[in-house]
């Protein structure tokens, strides 16, 4: 006898939900869509508002130019065509963010390891609270601290770096001025990203399964080998995500950087981190916004759009890395 195989029965996807569950799910779905809508609106707003400037300058010039000058004198008269190029500010933003991560990541990992694997329970709690407190400090406070306390010290460190390691190109300084450098801005940002990176790393390192740590110890593994071969591989994707979060904060930070960084237009400072030639899109916006005419405002919003895109790219990279490391496991 030939039988027809039965059709699989369909079970409604939310059959297990109660009425209250369903209402909750609807609200959550709406919230998720709302955030998407807000994000697209921001993107749309930025593109729309920056179009006049980009049309005026040309997209290529806007992205590769280093000058930023409205050519407007103090009495409001315009003599020449304005030039707006974000390249120097864009690279400056990336440079100080890299410095922040290079300094902040090892420090954060060190603190996280200490909290999870070394400190006594009481010291661990104290440190955790201190770090979380650091995360809650408004960035204006960091800015004030940076200008009053950090800059004098950072200046000496920069001078020392040039004098003793100046043969390495990144520590070159031809101006004899060591304030307002990307190095100092990077340190401020490092302090600001440390709480985020520490918290997330601490969380993921703390989730290393105890049976894996036991296994390592039973094989004669002391602290460092256990970290290197067991805990870090396990926490890898979380640490990458933490770093990207930190990078996101470093890229977008405004006030603290604005206080300590000297913005230099007209050239890109590719690598001389202890030279007083910096760039930062966020600081550029703060510096120029209040006195800008409509075209310059449009150009500043174009800078904002570039920053927005960079942040999206950073996030996309971090998601990809996190996903691929999860697959490895």
């Amino acid at each position: 006898m030939v039988v027809q195989p039965p059709q699989p029965r369909t079970v409604p996807r939310n059959a297990q939900l109660t009425k209250a569950d369903r209402r909750f799910a609807r609200i959550m779905t709406a919230a998720a869509f709302f955030s998407l809508i807000v994000l697209s609106l921001i993107a749309f707003f930025l593109v729309y508002q920056s179009l006049p400037a980009i049309r005026d300058q040309g997209l290529i010039n806007f992205l590769t130019g280093t000058e930023w000058d409205s050519k407007t004198t103090s009495d409001g008269t315009t003599t020449e065509d304005p030039v707006f190029g974000v390249a120097a500010m864009l690279w400056g933003t990336i440079l100080i963010a890299i410095i922040a991560i290079v300094i902040g990541l090892p420090v954060s990992l060190g603190i996280a390891v200490f909290i999870v694997f070394i400190a006594s329970a009481r010291l661990a709690t104290l440190l955790r609270n201190t770090i979380d407190f650091l995360a809650a400090i408004p960035s204006i406070v960091f800015g004030l601290w940076a200008i009053s306390a950090l800059t004098p010290v950072g200046k000496q460190w920069g001078e020392w770096l040039t004098n003793s390691l100046g043969f390495i190109p990144i520590f070159e300084n031809n101006l004899g001025i060591w304030v307002g450098t990307p190095f100092i801005a990077g340190i401020v940002l490092a302090v600001m990203v440390t709480p985020i990176i520490t918290s997330v790393s601490r969380e993921v390192l703390g989730r290393t399964p105890p049976e894996l740590i036991n296994a390592s110890q039973a094989l004669g593994g002391t602290l460092w080998p256990t970290l290197r071969y067991v805990a870090f591989p396990f926490a890898k994707s979380g640490i990458v995500a933490a770093t990207m979060l930190g990078l996101g904060r470093a890229l977008g930070e405004t006030v603290a950087v604005f206080y300590v960084l000297n913005l230099t237009y007209g050239k890109i400072n590719w690598y001389q981190i202890v030279s007083p030639d910096g760039g930062s899109i966020a600081s550029l916006i703060v510096a120029k916004f209040s006195e800008a005419d409509p075209l310059e405002i449009s150009a500043l919003l174009g800078g904002g759009m570039v920053l927005f895109i960079i942040t999206l790219i950073v996030n996309a990279i971090s998601t990809t890395i996190a996903r691929s490391t999860v697959k490895d496991m």
């Binding site: 399964p209 049976e211 894996l212 036991n214 039973a218 004669g220 591989p233 396990f234 890898k236 496991m329």
Partner: peptide
């Protein structure tokens, strides 16, 4: 610990 090895209740190979 190298001369006296240990095997645990739950199999715990290193996942990575």
């Amino acid at each position: 610990r190298l001369r006296i090895g240990m095997v645990f209740q739950k199999p715990n190979p290193f996942p990575a």
